[in-house]
């Protein structure tokens, strides 16, 4: 009789009004949000790109600025989805009790969690487009292949939103998220080839890097911005999708458990 927390997600189109709700909230702060999306990568690109770049004539076969641009597309989208899934998601679930209100309607928790992931991924999409705009405006990349980094941003968003929601489901309070950012997101940024090639790492760390999702995103993004087709693109996409599915299922099970108490 008891509801099974481990049953597979039952998806329905009822996630759409929830996504629209998040979008309507976002629209009210859109101006500041867009400025943030553009300013953040610009500061990195200008600061690190010009500053560090002047000492490094070339990295991985391109200018350091270009090298960094590909990394920034990925880390910026990762950050967007992570912040949304953790802080904003927790606020909606716990602080504002938005989820409780929604769950009293014909919407189920499965719809709510799906909407969270899709919304966080939408934020990533915006972040990805913003970085790409900066890259274009700065005249760094002109190849049409770089447009593929837009769907990539969506995929990276789905992946990190799903994983991030596991933390949200486990979190007793906002403080808990510091661990995730310090122990997962920051190392990911440093180990996955955002600022320097993974080949510079000791072999053991290279192996760690190979299983982290951000590496796979960077391996797709970097050739794209340089006008090349990425190698093993299917493998990289499959890894990101696997993380997404894993994160969605595990977080859903944890949310079901948490909210049934």
């Amino acid at each position: 009789m008891s509801m099974n927390h481990f049953s597979l997600p039952r998806l329905s189109v009822r996630f759409v009004p929830i996504w629209r709700r998040h979008f309507l909230v976002w629209k009210k702060v859109a101006a500041t949000s867009v400025i943030g999306h553009i300013a953040d990568p610009m500061i990195y690109l200008l600061g690190l790109g010009y500053g560090l770049g002047s000492f490094l004539p070339e990295m991985g076969g391109t200018s350091y600025m270009m090298f960094l641009a590909a990394g920034t597309v990925c880390y910026s989208t990762m950050n967007s989805a992570s912040f949304e899934a953790l802080y904003s998601g927790f606020s909606r679930m716990h602080e504002q009790r938005t989820w409780d209100a929604i769950l009293n309607t014909p919407v189920t928790l499965d719809d709510v969690v799906l909407a969270e992931i899709l919304w966080a991924a939408s934020k990533s999409l915006m972040a990805g487009v913003a970085v790409l705009l900066v890259v274009w405006l700065m005249g760094m990349s002109h190849t049409l292949l770089s447009l593929w980094s837009i769907p990539l941003a969506l995929l990276v968003g789905l992946c990190f939103a799903s994983i991030g929601l596991i933390m949200t489901a486990l979190a007793p309070s906002y403080d808990f998220f510091m661990y995730y950012f310090t122990l997962v997101i920051t190392p990911m940024m440093l180990l996955c080839g955002v600022f320097f090639p993974v080949t510079q790492l000791p072999p053991l760390l290279q192996e760690v890097s190979a299983i982290l999702p951000l590496s796979h995103a960077v391996d797709i993004a970097r050739p794209l911005l340089n006008g090349q087709l990425p190698a093993h693109v299917m493998t990289h996409v499959a890894v990101l999708l696997l993380y997404t599915v894993f994160g969605f299922y595990v977080s859903l099970v944890l949310f079901r458990r948490r909210l049934s108490r």
């Binding site: 929830i18 709700r21 309507l24 909230v25 938005t98 409780d100 309607t105």
Partner: peptide, 23 residues
């Protein structure tokens, strides 16, 4: 519900509109 869970970011009318969409 026992504890208020209106959407604080929305107006009175928007709260009703958004909630109706869930149905």
């Amino acid at each position: 519900p026992q504890i208020d869970n209106l959407d604080p970011d929305f107006s009175v009318a928007e709260n009703l509109l958004v909630y109706g969409r869930y149905f």
